[in-house]
Lab assay of single mutants.
Amino acid sequence: LKTAGVNTTDKEMEVLHLRNVSFEDAGEYTCLAGNSIGLSHHSAWLTVLEALEERPAVMTSPLYLEIIIYCTGAFLISCMVGSVIVYKMKSGTKKSDFHSQMAVHKLAKSIPLRRQVTVSADSSASMNSGVLLVRPSRLSSSGTPMLAGVSEYELPEDPRWELPRDRLVLGKPLGEGCFGQVVLAEAIGLDKDKPNRVTKVAVKMLKSDATEKDLSDLISEMEMMKMIGKHKNIINLLGACTQDGPLYVIVEYASKGNLREYLQARRPPGLEYCYNPSHNPEEQLSSKDLVSCAYQVARGMEYLASKKCIHRDLAARNVLVTEDNVMKIADFGLARDIHHIDYYKKTTNGRLPVKWMAPEALFDRIYTHQSDVWSFGVLLWEIFTLGGSPYPGVPVEELFKLLKEGHRMDKPSNCTNELYMMMRDCWHAVPSQRPTFKQLVEDLDRIVALTSNQEYLDLSMPLDQYSPSFPDTRSSTCSSGEDSVFSHEPLPEEPCLPRHPAQLANGGLKRR
Protein backbone atom coordinates (compact mmCIF):
# COMPACT_ATOMS: atom_id res chain seq x y z
CA LEU A 1 0.00 0.00 0.00
CA LYS A 2 1.14 3.47 -0.82
CA THR A 3 0.55 6.28 1.61
CA ALA A 4 -1.02 9.45 0.42
CA GLY A 5 1.48 12.24 0.27
CA VAL A 6 2.22 15.51 -1.42
CA ASN A 7 3.56 13.87 -4.53
CA THR A 8 1.06 11.02 -4.56
CA THR A 9 -1.75 11.07 -7.12
CA ASP A 10 -5.15 9.43 -6.82
CA LYS A 11 -4.13 6.78 -9.32
CA GLU A 12 -1.10 5.85 -7.18
CA MET A 13 -3.24 5.45 -4.06
CA GLU A 14 -4.53 2.00 -3.41
CA VAL A 15 -7.40 0.95 -1.17
CA LEU A 16 -7.62 -2.46 0.45
CA HIS A 17 -11.07 -3.53 1.67
CA LEU A 18 -11.02 -5.86 4.71
CA ARG A 19 -14.09 -7.66 5.97
CA ASN A 20 -14.98 -9.11 9.35
CA VAL A 21 -13.19 -6.38 11.32
CA SER A 22 -14.33 -4.53 14.42
CA PHE A 23 -14.04 -0.94 15.50
CA GLU A 24 -11.18 -1.98 17.84
CA ASP A 25 -9.11 -2.93 14.81
CA ALA A 26 -8.97 0.64 13.60
CA GLY A 27 -5.58 2.40 13.64
CA GLU A 28 -2.24 2.71 11.85
CA TYR A 29 -0.59 -0.39 10.44
CA THR A 30 3.00 -0.63 9.23
CA CYS A 31 4.33 -3.17 6.73
CA LEU A 32 7.99 -4.04 7.11
CA ALA A 33 10.05 -5.73 4.39
CA GLY A 34 13.74 -6.41 4.42
CA ASN A 35 16.58 -8.43 2.90
CA SER A 36 20.35 -8.47 2.79
CA ILE A 37 20.45 -5.10 1.20
CA GLY A 38 18.30 -3.29 3.70
CA LEU A 39 14.93 -2.74 5.37
CA SER A 40 11.85 -0.88 4.05
CA HIS A 41 8.45 -0.12 5.51
CA HIS A 42 5.16 1.57 4.65
CA SER A 43 2.31 2.60 6.91
CA ALA A 44 -1.44 2.81 6.23
CA TRP A 45 -4.50 3.69 8.23
CA LEU A 46 -7.29 1.19 8.72
CA THR A 47 -10.70 2.82 8.96
CA VAL A 48 -13.60 0.70 10.12
CA LEU A 49 -17.03 1.59 8.70
CA GLU A 50 -20.48 0.46 9.72
CA ALA A 51 -21.64 -2.69 7.92
CA LEU A 52 -24.00 -2.15 4.90
CA GLU A 53 -27.16 -4.25 4.42
CA GLU A 54 -26.65 -6.89 1.78
CA ARG A 55 -29.02 -6.73 -1.21
CA PRO A 56 -29.78 -9.61 -3.60
CA ALA A 57 -27.86 -9.43 -6.81
CA VAL A 58 -29.85 -8.29 -9.80
CA MET A 59 -29.55 -10.29 -13.01
CA THR A 60 -28.53 -8.05 -15.87
CA SER A 61 -27.45 -10.65 -18.31
CA PRO A 62 -28.73 -10.44 -21.96
CA LEU A 63 -30.61 -13.71 -21.50
CA TYR A 64 -32.68 -12.21 -18.71
CA LEU A 65 -33.59 -9.19 -20.89
CA GLU A 66 -34.69 -11.45 -23.76
CA ILE A 67 -36.95 -13.40 -21.40
CA ILE A 68 -38.61 -10.18 -20.26
CA ILE A 69 -39.14 -8.99 -23.88
CA TYR A 70 -40.63 -12.31 -25.03
CA CYS A 71 -42.99 -12.52 -22.08
CA THR A 72 -44.21 -8.96 -22.62
CA GLY A 73 -44.76 -9.57 -26.36
CA ALA A 74 -46.66 -12.79 -25.74
CA PHE A 75 -48.91 -11.00 -23.28
CA LEU A 76 -49.72 -8.20 -25.73
CA ILE A 77 -50.43 -10.65 -28.57
CA SER A 78 -52.75 -12.65 -26.33
CA CYS A 79 -54.66 -9.48 -25.49
CA MET A 80 -55.03 -8.57 -29.17
CA VAL A 81 -56.22 -12.05 -30.18
CA GLY A 82 -58.71 -12.07 -27.34
CA SER A 83 -60.08 -8.67 -28.39
CA VAL A 84 -60.52 -9.83 -32.00
CA ILE A 85 -62.32 -13.00 -30.91
CA VAL A 86 -64.70 -11.02 -28.71
CA TYR A 87 -65.39 -8.52 -31.54
CA LYS A 88 -66.06 -11.31 -34.05
CA MET A 89 -68.45 -13.02 -31.68
CA LYS A 90 -70.42 -9.80 -31.16
CA SER A 91 -70.55 -8.89 -34.87
CA GLY A 92 -71.50 -12.47 -35.80
CA THR A 93 -74.47 -12.26 -33.45
CA LYS A 94 -75.65 -9.03 -35.09
CA LYS A 95 -75.29 -10.50 -38.61
CA SER A 96 -77.24 -13.60 -37.73
CA ASP A 97 -80.05 -11.44 -36.37
CA PHE A 98 -80.14 -9.43 -39.61
CA HIS A 99 -80.15 -12.45 -41.88
CA SER A 100 -82.86 -14.15 -39.89
CA GLN A 101 -85.05 -11.12 -40.52
CA MET A 102 -84.27 -11.36 -44.25
CA ALA A 103 -85.15 -15.07 -44.23
CA VAL A 104 -81.85 -16.04 -45.80
CA HIS A 105 -80.05 -17.38 -42.73
CA LYS A 106 -79.29 -20.71 -44.42
CA LEU A 107 -76.86 -19.19 -46.88
CA ALA A 108 -73.23 -20.20 -47.11
CA LYS A 109 -71.45 -17.49 -49.13
CA SER A 110 -72.13 -14.26 -50.97
CA ILE A 111 -71.43 -12.76 -54.35
CA PRO A 112 -69.59 -9.44 -53.99
CA LEU A 113 -71.67 -6.97 -55.96
CA ARG A 114 -70.90 -3.32 -56.40
CA ARG A 115 -73.24 -0.67 -57.62
CA GLN A 116 -71.13 1.44 -59.94
CA VAL A 117 -72.30 5.00 -60.37
CA THR A 118 -70.01 7.47 -62.06
CA VAL A 119 -70.14 10.75 -60.20
CA SER A 120 -66.95 12.53 -61.21
CA ALA A 121 -67.30 15.43 -63.61
CA ASP A 122 -63.80 15.17 -65.04
CA SER A 123 -62.67 11.59 -64.83
CA SER A 124 -63.82 8.01 -64.95
CA ALA A 125 -63.73 7.65 -61.18
CA SER A 126 -66.66 5.69 -59.81
CA MET A 127 -68.40 5.47 -56.49
CA ASN A 128 -68.63 1.86 -55.42
CA SER A 129 -71.16 0.90 -52.84
CA GLY A 130 -70.59 -2.56 -51.46
CA VAL A 131 -74.24 -3.33 -50.87
CA LEU A 132 -74.96 -7.02 -50.52
CA LEU A 133 -77.59 -7.66 -53.16
CA VAL A 134 -77.67 -11.43 -53.50
CA ARG A 135 -76.67 -14.50 -51.58
CA PRO A 136 -76.62 -18.15 -52.66
CA SER A 137 -79.19 -20.51 -51.25
CA ARG A 138 -79.12 -24.25 -50.74
CA LEU A 139 -82.80 -24.32 -51.56
CA SER A 140 -83.77 -25.35 -55.10
CA SER A 141 -86.70 -23.92 -56.96
CA SER A 142 -89.26 -26.19 -58.51
CA GLY A 143 -90.08 -26.09 -62.20
CA THR A 144 -87.06 -24.00 -63.26
CA PRO A 145 -83.79 -25.35 -64.67
CA MET A 146 -80.62 -24.66 -62.72
CA LEU A 147 -77.96 -22.52 -64.38
CA ALA A 148 -74.84 -24.43 -65.34
CA GLY A 149 -72.41 -21.76 -64.16
CA VAL A 150 -74.48 -20.20 -61.39
CA SER A 151 -76.14 -22.09 -58.57
CA GLU A 152 -79.56 -21.01 -57.35
CA TYR A 153 -79.37 -17.68 -55.54
CA GLU A 154 -81.88 -16.04 -53.32
CA LEU A 155 -82.26 -12.25 -53.44
CA PRO A 156 -83.82 -10.03 -50.81
CA GLU A 157 -87.32 -9.19 -52.00
CA ASP A 158 -88.07 -5.57 -52.88
CA PRO A 159 -91.85 -5.11 -52.51
CA ARG A 160 -91.83 -1.99 -54.68
CA TRP A 161 -90.66 -3.91 -57.75
CA GLU A 162 -91.47 -7.58 -57.11
CA LEU A 163 -93.89 -9.25 -59.56
CA PRO A 164 -95.11 -12.82 -58.90
CA ARG A 165 -93.92 -15.24 -61.57
CA ASP A 166 -97.42 -16.50 -62.26
CA ARG A 167 -98.32 -13.01 -63.51
CA LEU A 168 -95.61 -13.04 -66.20
CA VAL A 169 -96.07 -14.95 -69.48
CA LEU A 170 -92.85 -15.30 -71.49
CA GLY A 171 -92.98 -15.10 -75.28
CA LYS A 172 -90.60 -15.06 -78.24
CA PRO A 173 -86.92 -14.06 -77.98
CA LEU A 174 -86.07 -10.49 -78.94
CA GLY A 175 -82.29 -10.77 -78.83
CA GLU A 176 -79.37 -12.27 -76.98
CA GLY A 177 -75.76 -11.67 -76.07
CA CYS A 178 -72.96 -13.91 -74.86
CA PHE A 179 -74.58 -14.76 -71.52
CA GLY A 180 -77.88 -12.89 -71.46
CA GLN A 181 -81.05 -12.77 -73.50
CA VAL A 182 -84.17 -10.63 -73.85
CA VAL A 183 -87.63 -12.07 -74.51
CA LEU A 184 -91.00 -10.51 -75.18
CA ALA A 185 -93.51 -11.13 -72.41
CA GLU A 186 -96.91 -10.13 -71.07
CA ALA A 187 -97.11 -8.87 -67.51
CA ILE A 188 -100.41 -8.83 -65.63
CA GLY A 189 -101.04 -6.21 -63.00
CA LEU A 190 -97.88 -4.11 -63.22
CA ASP A 191 -100.05 -1.16 -62.25
CA LYS A 192 -101.25 -1.83 -58.70
CA ASP A 193 -104.39 0.21 -59.39
CA LYS A 194 -105.23 -1.96 -62.44
CA PRO A 195 -104.44 -5.53 -61.36
CA ASN A 196 -105.95 -7.12 -64.49
CA ARG A 197 -104.29 -4.96 -67.14
CA VAL A 198 -101.95 -6.86 -69.51
CA THR A 199 -98.80 -5.00 -70.58
CA LYS A 200 -96.27 -6.02 -73.23
CA VAL A 201 -92.81 -5.93 -71.69
CA ALA A 202 -89.25 -7.01 -72.39
CA VAL A 203 -87.64 -9.40 -69.90
CA LYS A 204 -83.89 -9.63 -69.39
CA MET A 205 -82.56 -12.94 -68.11
CA LEU A 206 -79.40 -15.02 -68.02
CA LYS A 207 -78.64 -17.89 -70.38
CA SER A 208 -77.92 -21.39 -69.13
CA ASP A 209 -74.12 -20.97 -69.34
CA ALA A 210 -74.02 -17.73 -67.35
CA THR A 211 -71.49 -17.21 -64.57
CA GLU A 212 -71.66 -15.50 -61.19
CA LYS A 213 -70.18 -12.37 -62.76
CA ASP A 214 -73.00 -12.27 -65.31
CA LEU A 215 -75.53 -12.57 -62.51
CA SER A 216 -73.72 -9.83 -60.64
CA ASP A 217 -73.83 -7.55 -63.71
CA LEU A 218 -77.55 -8.14 -64.28
CA ILE A 219 -78.39 -7.36 -60.65
CA SER A 220 -76.18 -4.26 -60.74
CA GLU A 221 -78.00 -3.06 -63.87
CA MET A 222 -81.34 -3.59 -62.15
CA GLU A 223 -80.22 -1.67 -59.06
CA MET A 224 -78.87 1.15 -61.21
CA MET A 225 -82.23 1.48 -62.99
CA LYS A 226 -84.01 1.61 -59.63
CA MET A 227 -81.76 4.40 -58.47
CA ILE A 228 -81.93 6.50 -61.65
CA GLY A 229 -85.72 6.55 -61.73
CA LYS A 230 -88.17 7.04 -64.59
CA HIS A 231 -88.07 9.33 -67.63
CA LYS A 232 -89.94 9.30 -70.93
CA ASN A 233 -86.79 9.03 -73.03
CA ILE A 234 -85.01 6.17 -71.25
CA ILE A 235 -85.89 2.50 -70.98
CA ASN A 236 -87.54 2.28 -67.56
CA LEU A 237 -87.56 -0.58 -65.09
CA LEU A 238 -91.08 -1.95 -64.58
CA GLY A 239 -90.49 -4.78 -62.15
CA ALA A 240 -88.52 -7.93 -61.37
CA CYS A 241 -88.98 -11.59 -60.46
CA THR A 242 -86.37 -12.38 -57.82
CA GLN A 243 -88.00 -15.12 -55.73
CA ASP A 244 -88.29 -18.89 -56.28
CA GLY A 245 -86.44 -19.05 -59.57
CA PRO A 246 -84.04 -17.33 -61.96
CA LEU A 247 -83.77 -13.56 -61.99
CA TYR A 248 -86.06 -11.77 -64.47
CA VAL A 249 -85.60 -8.02 -64.98
CA ILE A 250 -88.75 -6.50 -66.52
CA VAL A 251 -88.29 -3.35 -68.62
CA GLU A 252 -90.28 -1.35 -71.16
CA TYR A 253 -90.79 -2.92 -74.59
CA ALA A 254 -89.89 -0.92 -77.71
CA SER A 255 -91.68 -2.56 -80.63
CA LYS A 256 -89.80 -0.79 -83.46
CA GLY A 257 -86.34 -1.95 -82.47
CA ASN A 258 -83.22 0.16 -82.23
CA LEU A 259 -82.87 3.57 -83.85
CA ARG A 260 -80.27 2.49 -86.39
CA GLU A 261 -82.49 -0.24 -87.85
CA TYR A 262 -85.51 2.06 -87.57
CA LEU A 263 -83.80 4.68 -89.76
CA GLN A 264 -82.45 2.19 -92.27
CA ALA A 265 -85.90 0.64 -92.73
CA ARG A 266 -87.25 4.08 -93.67
CA ARG A 267 -84.72 4.97 -96.33
CA PRO A 268 -86.35 5.93 -99.65
CA PRO A 269 -86.41 3.24 -102.38
CA GLY A 270 -83.06 2.85 -104.11
CA LEU A 271 -81.17 4.44 -101.21
CA GLU A 272 -81.42 1.59 -98.72
CA TYR A 273 -78.19 0.43 -97.11
CA CYS A 274 -78.34 -2.92 -98.87
CA TYR A 275 -79.69 -3.16 -102.41
CA ASN A 276 -83.01 -4.98 -102.53
CA PRO A 277 -85.35 -4.49 -105.54
CA SER A 278 -88.35 -5.68 -103.52
CA HIS A 279 -87.62 -3.30 -100.65
CA ASN A 280 -90.80 -1.66 -99.41
CA PRO A 281 -89.82 1.17 -97.04
CA GLU A 282 -91.80 2.14 -93.98
CA GLU A 283 -93.40 5.55 -93.65
CA GLN A 284 -91.31 8.37 -95.08
CA LEU A 285 -89.49 10.55 -92.58
CA SER A 286 -89.49 14.33 -92.68
CA SER A 287 -86.67 16.59 -91.56
CA LYS A 288 -88.71 17.38 -88.48
CA ASP A 289 -88.92 13.67 -87.65
CA LEU A 290 -85.13 13.42 -87.68
CA VAL A 291 -84.67 16.53 -85.56
CA SER A 292 -87.30 15.18 -83.16
CA CYS A 293 -85.32 11.94 -82.82
CA ALA A 294 -82.22 13.93 -81.89
CA TYR A 295 -84.19 16.13 -79.49
CA GLN A 296 -85.65 13.16 -77.62
CA VAL A 297 -82.27 11.46 -77.25
CA ALA A 298 -80.78 14.72 -75.97
CA ARG A 299 -83.58 14.97 -73.39
CA GLY A 300 -82.90 11.45 -72.19
CA MET A 301 -79.17 12.15 -71.91
CA GLU A 302 -79.86 15.42 -70.09
CA TYR A 303 -81.85 13.45 -67.50
CA LEU A 304 -79.12 10.81 -67.11
CA ALA A 305 -76.53 13.55 -66.69
CA SER A 306 -78.66 15.12 -63.96
CA LYS A 307 -78.52 11.75 -62.17
CA LYS A 308 -74.71 11.71 -62.44
CA CYS A 309 -74.88 8.79 -64.88
CA ILE A 310 -72.31 8.56 -67.68
CA HIS A 311 -73.48 6.25 -70.48
CA ARG A 312 -70.10 5.56 -72.16
CA ASP A 313 -71.69 3.76 -75.14
CA LEU A 314 -74.21 6.19 -76.64
CA ALA A 315 -75.03 5.20 -80.23
CA ALA A 316 -78.08 4.67 -82.42
CA ARG A 317 -77.89 0.93 -81.71
CA ASN A 318 -78.48 1.69 -78.01
CA VAL A 319 -81.55 3.86 -78.57
CA LEU A 320 -84.87 1.99 -78.86
CA VAL A 321 -88.05 3.18 -80.59
CA THR A 322 -91.54 2.50 -79.22
CA GLU A 323 -94.77 1.99 -81.14
CA ASP A 324 -95.51 5.72 -80.75
CA ASN A 325 -92.07 6.69 -82.14
CA VAL A 326 -90.74 7.67 -78.73
CA MET A 327 -86.94 7.45 -78.45
CA LYS A 328 -85.69 5.63 -75.35
CA ILE A 329 -82.04 5.32 -74.35
CA ALA A 330 -81.09 1.77 -73.34
CA ASP A 331 -78.15 0.04 -71.65
CA PHE A 332 -77.26 3.04 -69.47
CA GLY A 333 -77.09 0.81 -66.39
CA LEU A 334 -74.64 -1.73 -67.77
CA ALA A 335 -71.45 -2.36 -65.82
CA ARG A 336 -68.58 -1.63 -68.20
CA ASP A 337 -64.93 -2.29 -67.38
CA ILE A 338 -63.37 0.77 -68.99
CA HIS A 339 -59.84 -0.39 -68.22
CA HIS A 340 -60.10 -3.58 -70.26
CA ILE A 341 -61.70 -2.39 -73.49
CA ASP A 342 -60.56 -4.22 -76.61
CA TYR A 343 -60.39 -1.41 -79.16
CA TYR A 344 -60.29 -3.88 -82.04
CA LYS A 345 -63.20 -6.07 -80.90
CA LYS A 346 -66.47 -5.59 -82.74
CA THR A 347 -69.88 -5.62 -81.15
CA THR A 348 -72.39 -8.37 -81.89
CA ASN A 349 -73.69 -6.44 -84.92
CA GLY A 350 -70.22 -5.86 -86.34
CA ARG A 351 -69.78 -2.21 -85.34
CA LEU A 352 -66.58 -0.94 -83.79
CA PRO A 353 -67.57 0.93 -80.60
CA VAL A 354 -64.41 3.07 -80.71
CA LYS A 355 -65.90 5.03 -83.61
CA TRP A 356 -68.34 6.64 -81.16
CA MET A 357 -65.70 7.39 -78.50
CA ALA A 358 -64.25 10.80 -77.70
CA PRO A 359 -60.45 11.18 -78.06
CA GLU A 360 -59.94 11.52 -74.29
CA ALA A 361 -61.89 8.28 -73.77
CA LEU A 362 -60.08 6.59 -76.64
CA PHE A 363 -56.54 7.55 -75.68
CA ASP A 364 -56.69 8.28 -71.93
CA ARG A 365 -59.82 6.32 -70.92
CA ILE A 366 -61.36 9.41 -69.34
CA TYR A 367 -65.16 9.22 -69.45
CA THR A 368 -67.27 12.26 -68.60
CA HIS A 369 -70.60 13.79 -69.58
CA GLN A 370 -68.63 15.67 -72.25
CA SER A 371 -67.33 12.42 -73.74
CA ASP A 372 -70.99 11.38 -73.99
CA VAL A 373 -71.61 14.65 -75.86
CA TRP A 374 -69.00 13.60 -78.44
CA SER A 375 -70.85 10.29 -78.89
CA PHE A 376 -74.10 12.24 -79.27
CA GLY A 377 -72.50 14.12 -82.18
CA VAL A 378 -71.76 10.80 -83.89
CA LEU A 379 -75.35 9.72 -83.18
CA LEU A 380 -76.57 12.93 -84.87
CA TRP A 381 -74.52 11.94 -87.90
CA GLU A 382 -76.15 8.50 -87.84
CA ILE A 383 -79.61 10.08 -87.72
CA PHE A 384 -79.08 12.37 -90.71
CA THR A 385 -77.52 9.60 -92.80
CA LEU A 386 -80.51 7.39 -91.90
CA GLY A 387 -78.45 4.80 -90.08
CA GLY A 388 -75.11 5.29 -91.80
CA SER A 389 -71.89 3.80 -90.48
CA PRO A 390 -69.39 6.34 -89.05
CA TYR A 391 -65.96 6.58 -90.69
CA PRO A 392 -66.77 3.94 -93.33
CA GLY A 393 -63.75 2.11 -94.69
CA VAL A 394 -61.42 3.63 -92.07
CA PRO A 395 -59.40 1.04 -90.10
CA VAL A 396 -58.97 1.59 -86.39
CA GLU A 397 -55.26 2.42 -86.64
CA GLU A 398 -55.98 5.09 -89.25
CA LEU A 399 -58.88 6.46 -87.18
CA PHE A 400 -56.58 7.07 -84.20
CA LYS A 401 -54.21 9.06 -86.41
CA LEU A 402 -56.95 11.07 -88.12
CA LEU A 403 -58.64 12.07 -84.86
CA LYS A 404 -55.33 13.24 -83.40
CA GLU A 405 -54.75 15.33 -86.53
CA GLY A 406 -58.15 16.99 -86.09
CA HIS A 407 -60.08 15.34 -88.93
CA ARG A 408 -63.87 15.14 -88.59
CA MET A 409 -66.65 13.55 -90.66
CA ASP A 410 -68.22 15.56 -93.49
CA LYS A 411 -71.73 17.01 -93.45
CA PRO A 412 -74.45 14.51 -94.39
CA SER A 413 -76.47 15.37 -97.51
CA ASN A 414 -79.79 15.97 -95.76
CA CYS A 415 -78.43 18.00 -92.88
CA THR A 416 -78.61 21.77 -92.46
CA ASN A 417 -75.52 23.81 -91.77
CA GLU A 418 -76.85 24.63 -88.30
CA LEU A 419 -77.22 20.97 -87.39
CA TYR A 420 -73.82 20.15 -88.86
CA MET A 421 -72.23 22.90 -86.79
CA MET A 422 -73.91 21.32 -83.77
CA MET A 423 -72.16 18.04 -84.65
CA ARG A 424 -68.84 19.85 -85.01
CA ASP A 425 -69.33 21.53 -81.64
CA CYS A 426 -69.91 18.10 -80.10
CA TRP A 427 -66.63 16.97 -81.72
CA HIS A 428 -64.54 19.80 -80.28
CA ALA A 429 -61.09 18.55 -79.28
CA VAL A 430 -61.33 20.29 -75.89
CA PRO A 431 -64.07 18.63 -73.78
CA SER A 432 -64.93 21.82 -71.88
CA GLN A 433 -65.65 23.59 -75.19
CA ARG A 434 -68.37 21.11 -76.14
CA PRO A 435 -72.01 21.99 -75.42
CA THR A 436 -73.80 20.44 -72.46
CA PHE A 437 -76.86 18.27 -72.95
CA LYS A 438 -78.94 21.06 -71.45
CA GLN A 439 -77.71 23.41 -74.18
CA LEU A 440 -78.30 20.77 -76.87
CA VAL A 441 -81.89 20.26 -75.66
CA GLU A 442 -82.56 24.00 -75.85
CA ASP A 443 -81.08 24.32 -79.35
CA LEU A 444 -82.86 21.25 -80.72
CA ASP A 445 -86.14 22.35 -79.15
CA ARG A 446 -85.85 25.64 -81.03
CA ILE A 447 -84.98 23.87 -84.31
CA VAL A 448 -87.92 21.47 -83.96
CA ALA A 449 -90.29 24.40 -83.49
CA LEU A 450 -88.96 26.12 -86.63
CA THR A 451 -88.93 23.01 -88.82
CA SER A 452 -92.03 22.38 -90.90
CA ASN A 453 -93.76 19.03 -90.84
CA GLN A 454 -93.83 19.09 -94.64
CA GLU A 455 -90.04 19.29 -95.03
CA TYR A 456 -89.36 15.82 -96.39
CA LEU A 457 -85.91 14.59 -97.20
CA ASP A 458 -84.39 15.74 -100.48
CA LEU A 459 -84.31 12.59 -102.57
CA SER A 460 -82.20 14.22 -105.28
CA MET A 461 -79.11 13.79 -103.10
CA PRO A 462 -77.83 10.41 -101.91
CA LEU A 463 -78.29 9.83 -98.22
CA ASP A 464 -75.32 7.55 -97.75
CA GLN A 465 -72.90 6.41 -100.42
CA TYR A 466 -71.61 3.59 -98.24
CA SER A 467 -72.80 0.15 -97.41
CA PRO A 468 -72.86 -0.11 -93.59
CA SER A 469 -73.27 -3.83 -93.95
CA PHE A 470 -69.62 -4.01 -95.00
CA PRO A 471 -67.05 -4.39 -92.22
CA ASP A 472 -65.74 -0.99 -91.14
CA THR A 473 -62.13 -2.09 -91.06
CA ARG A 474 -62.08 -3.30 -94.68
CA SER A 475 -59.94 -1.39 -97.16
CA SER A 476 -61.57 -0.58 -100.48
CA THR A 477 -59.94 -2.04 -103.57
CA CYS A 478 -61.58 0.46 -105.90
CA SER A 479 -61.63 3.71 -103.98
CA SER A 480 -61.32 6.96 -105.82
CA GLY A 481 -57.99 8.68 -105.41
CA GLU A 482 -55.10 7.57 -103.24
CA ASP A 483 -56.71 7.95 -99.83
CA SER A 484 -59.75 5.79 -99.14
CA VAL A 485 -60.48 7.86 -96.02
CA PHE A 486 -61.91 10.70 -98.08
CA SER A 487 -63.80 8.61 -100.60
CA HIS A 488 -65.15 5.11 -100.91
CA GLU A 489 -66.31 3.71 -104.25
CA PRO A 490 -68.60 0.65 -104.58
CA LEU A 491 -66.88 -2.68 -104.76
CA PRO A 492 -67.43 -4.19 -108.22
CA GLU A 493 -68.92 -7.44 -106.98
CA GLU A 494 -71.43 -5.87 -104.54
CA PRO A 495 -74.34 -3.49 -105.31
CA CYS A 496 -73.94 0.01 -103.89
CA LEU A 497 -75.49 3.38 -104.50
CA PRO A 498 -74.40 5.67 -107.34
CA ARG A 499 -71.99 8.41 -106.35
CA HIS A 500 -73.25 11.96 -106.78
CA PRO A 501 -70.61 13.81 -108.82
CA ALA A 502 -70.98 17.16 -107.10
CA GLN A 503 -71.08 15.90 -103.55
CA LEU A 504 -68.17 14.80 -101.39
CA ALA A 505 -68.76 11.37 -99.93
CA ASN A 506 -70.76 11.52 -96.72
CA GLY A 507 -68.19 9.53 -94.84
CA GLY A 508 -65.39 11.86 -95.88
CA LEU A 509 -63.39 13.58 -93.22
CA LYS A 510 -62.66 17.23 -92.68
CA ARG A 511 -59.96 18.80 -90.60
CA ARG A 512 -61.20 20.94 -87.75
Score class of each variant (00 low, 15 high):
245 G>V: 04
360 E>G: 03
447 I>V: 05
244 D>Y: 06
229 G>W: 07
367 Y>H: 05
251 V>M: 15
339 H>P: 04
166 D>E: 05
264 Q>K: 07
471 P>A: 08
222 M>V: 14
300 G>S: 03
256 K>M: 08
459 L>M: 12
288 K>N: 08
402 L>R: 05
227 M>I: 07
277 P>A: 09
468 P>A: 12
285 L>H: 06
349 N>Y: 08
456 Y>S: 11
467 S>A: 07
174 L>P: 14
203 V>M: 05
233 N>S: 13
229 G>A: 15
409 M>I: 00
304 L>R: 00
388 G>D: 01
466 Y>S: 13
306 S>P: 01
300 G>A: 12
229 G>R: 12
371 S>T: 04
291 V>M: 10
296 Q>H: 12
411 K>Q: 10
200 K>Q: 13
414 N>I: 12
259 L>M: 03
434 R>G: 00
363 F>L: 07
458 D>Y: 07
406 G>R: 01
329 I>R: 15
171 G>S: 14
314 L>M: 06
217 D>N: 06
439 Q>K: 13
175 G>E: 03
233 N>K: 09
245 G>A: 13
464 D>V: 11
227 M>K: 07
261 E>Q: 04
387 G>C: 03
323 E>Q: 13
201 V>E: 04
263 L>V: 09
403 L>M: 08
231 H>L: 06
291 V>E: 08
335 A>S: 04
398 E>K: 12
434 R>S: 00
330 A>P: 03
399 L>F: 03
247 L>S: 07
387 G>V: 00
223 E>K: 12
469 S>C: 10
236 N>H: 15
230 K>M: 03
291 V>L: 06
480 S>L: 13
435 P>S: 02
414 N>T: 11
384 F>L: 12
347 T>R: 09
442 E>G: 07
261 E>K: 07
354 V>M: 02
375 S>Y: 12
470 F>Y: 12
349 N>S: 05
478 C>W: 04
244 D>A: 06
353 P>T: 02
223 E>D: 12
335 A>V: 01
252 E>K: 14
398 E>D: 05
381 W>L: 02
301 M>K: 01
383 I>T: 11
209 D>H: 04
435 P>H: 00
278 S>I: 06
383 I>F: 02
230 K>Q: 12
312 R>L: 00
455 E>G: 11
385 T>P: 03
430 V>A: 05
219 I>T: 11
186 E>Q: 13
434 R>I: 00
199 T>N: 12
262 Y>N: 07
437 F>Y: 02
172 K>E: 13
366 I>L: 04
376 F>V: 05
222 M>K: 14
237 L>Q: 13
448 V>A: 10
294 A>D: 02
327 M>R: 03
435 P>L: 01
336 R>W: 07
475 S>R: 11
477 T>S: 10
388 G>R: 04
349 N>K: 15
309 C>S: 07
360 E>Q: 01
403 L>R: 02
310 I>L: 06
357 M>T: 12
253 Y>H: 09
325 N>Y: 09
330 A>G: 08
234 I>V: 15
345 K>N: 02
355 K>N: 11
443 D>A: 09
450 L>M: 11
464 D>A: 08
213 K>Q: 09
359 P>T: 09
282 E>G: 06
302 E>V: 06
476 S>P: 14
218 L>R: 07
421 M>T: 12
170 L>F: 15
189 G>E: 11
215 L>S: 03
362 L>F: 03
236 N>I: 15
389 S>Y: 08
427 W>C: 00
319 V>A: 02
242 T>K: 10
370 Q>K: 11
379 L>F: 12
297 V>A: 07
409 M>K: 01
476 S>Y: 13
473 T>N: 09
398 E>V: 12
360 E>D: 03
396 V>A: 05
219 I>F: 15
177 G>V: 01
279 H>N: 04
274 C>S: 09
188 I>M: 12
316 A>T: 05
384 F>I: 11
207 K>N: 07
483 D>A: 15
319 V>I: 10
298 A>D: 01
400 F>L: 10
211 T>A: 05
457 L>V: 10
455 E>K: 05
277 P>T: 08
239 G>R: 07
436 T>A: 08
378 V>A: 03
307 K>E: 11
402 L>V: 06
176 E>D: 11
313 D>Y: 01
